[in-house]
Design a protein around this nucleic acid. Structure first.
Lengths: 202, 202
DNA sequence: CTGTTTTAGTATCGATTCGAAACCATCCTC
DNA sequence: GAGGATGGTTTCGAATCGATACTAAAACAG
């Protein structure tokens, strides 16, 4: 199969799907912001992280975030550890529209794939993403499940968290393991115990 | 595997890759126009067809095309059958920059996939694209190889073209079979003889 | 043949986004 | 504490976006 045809398909499908469920008066970029802050873990909910994720500049990201903030979809909190930094949190208004309606056409299309294909398909996408990001010298934005910085054996003993992030030197809650992270480094290939293991309901 | 995660990956990869090889002072949309007119067959090299392909409006497409025309990348020819219509052709300047450099990062990423995976991956992408396009009520833009309108048995006898398009009622040259077409309707699953069969070098 | 509808393409509008650059404020290192 | 790096914002001009209105040619109706 022609690699160029695959590249064309990726661009075409991404383009077509990005302008799909643009309800609520939000643009494609604004939806991307909301989806990102819904999925990003606590180390990654900053304007700079979104800019890196989205492949744009910090300036552009700042504008879009400010716009969404004035519309009441995001609230801003200054970080206490680093007082330059800012943490963005979705408002109830944002989570309300995220749960029931966003790029549903694309989700349905993925859902219509044969179930045996979906896993391989997602792996191929993740691989291509990693390759492209690596060539750019930018972080590939994965989750803890396959991150080199994940530490711990999955056994929680006497109140101790079962996992930790070796990069941030902080314990990780179980429900944090499937959030995307700017510090992601591809490492161990999916050897996580517990209720996550790549198929978490988010 | 979570369908929503796949949808996220598709959008993310498409977004990241679209802003990649933006050399020559061309934007992502302008590259998309050039790539489209390099791949589209003779029934589809019009502003309206590109607008449908790219999921935008005719007005926006008209602007971008006019811009590329003044930069010397496209030449315009009025159609003789329909005198409202316009046919766009790449100039030598455009083909020169297309052959050696365009979204190469994404092509390399697709090339780095295991060879056994590429075929299934492309099929999954095409399926998702078809699903999304079908929900929009828009044409999915495939090639003759799997188009319902393709007629002929692949046997060329005494100067007769071996294939024809039942929609346009015109004979098809062999080298036209792998161009994308706005009149594509998914039909027979890849039963084409000859040097094409889905893996043509373009 | 005339009137209506549809289609291909263009022109114009304001809003949004884009990258680039300049600019603060806050860390961090020496 | 001086210098540099980092997180964020602002401003700028250019490009894109959808929406709308418009012309011209085709297709269709009677």
């Amino acid at each position: 199969m022609d690699s160029r045809a695959i590249a064309e398909l990726v661009l075409h499908l991404g383009r077509i799907a990005s302008g799909e469920g643009l309800v609520e008066g939000l643009t494609a970029v604004q939806w991307a912001v909301l989806r990102y802050f819904a999925r990003a873990n606590r180390f990654s909910r900053t304007p700079s992280a979104f800019a890196a994720f989205h492949g744009t500049t910090r300036g552009t990201a700042s504008q879009t975030i400010k716009n969404l903030e004035t519309q009441g979809y995001l609230t801003r909190m200054r970080s206490e550890a680093d007082r330059r930094s800012v943490r963005l949190v979705l408002t109830d208004k944002a989570t309300a529209i995220l749960v029931n309606d966003l790029f549903e056409a694309l989700v349905r299309a993925a859902d219509a794939l044969p179930s045996g294909v979906r896993g391989h398909f997602a792996n191929a996408l993740q691989r291509m993403l990693g390759q492209v990001a690596w060539e750019r010298g930018k972080p590939p934005f994965g989750t803890c499940a396959s991150c080199k910085h994940l530490e711990g054996d999955g056994c929680s003993r006497e109140g101790q968290a079962p996992y930790a992030c070796g990069f941030a030197s902080e314990p990780l809650l179980l429900e944090e393991l499937d959030g995307v992270c700017i510090n992601f480094v591809p490492g161990k290939p999916m050897t996580v115990k517990g209720p996550v293991a790549g198929a978490a309901p988010r």
